[in-house]
């Protein structure tokens, strides 16, 4: 359990936006599963903080949310990315790249 990395604060937004951008409409549970599978179990979304984050992003206009039915015919809230969300995704990706290169440089410096 411990070995799995909790997702760093600040990168959650990036990962959610990216997942929705590539997979389209998903509910929260599906988003966690998706991130976990795609990262080969390296990353784990902290479930307690996912839903408040999804609501914040919806309020910021990056996501659209609607209640719908799953394949098993259960009520769930589905999220999809908006145009504004896509622009935010670009910004987040650029910022992540910068951070990554920065961290890499720091790590290389001895």
């Amino acid at each position: 359990m411990k070995a799995k990395n909790d997702i760093l604060q600040g990168t959650l937004v990036l990962l959610v936006l990216r997942s929705l951008a590539s997979r389209g409409k998903m509910h929260g549970y599906a988003i966690t599963n998706h991130i976990q599978q795609v990262s080969s179990d390296l990353l784990r979304v902290e479930e307690g903080s996912l839903y408040p984050a999804l609501h914040r992003m919806t309020q910021d206009g990056w996501l659209r949310a609607e209640w719908g039915k799953t394949e098993k015919n259960r009520e769930a809230r589905f999220y999809s990315i908006t145009a504004e969300g896509r622009r935010q995704l670009e910004r987040e990706e650029a910022s992540w790249a910068r951070l990554q290169s920065g961290v890499r440089k720091v790590l290389r410096y001895t």
Partner: peptide
């Protein structure tokens, strides 16, 4: 209203899990 929605979502999440 928000927290009610969130809690509904979470119930769904937990039952799925």
């Amino acid at each position: 209203k928000v927290s009610r929605e969130i809690s509904r979502e979470m119930d769904f999440h937990i039952s799925e899990r």
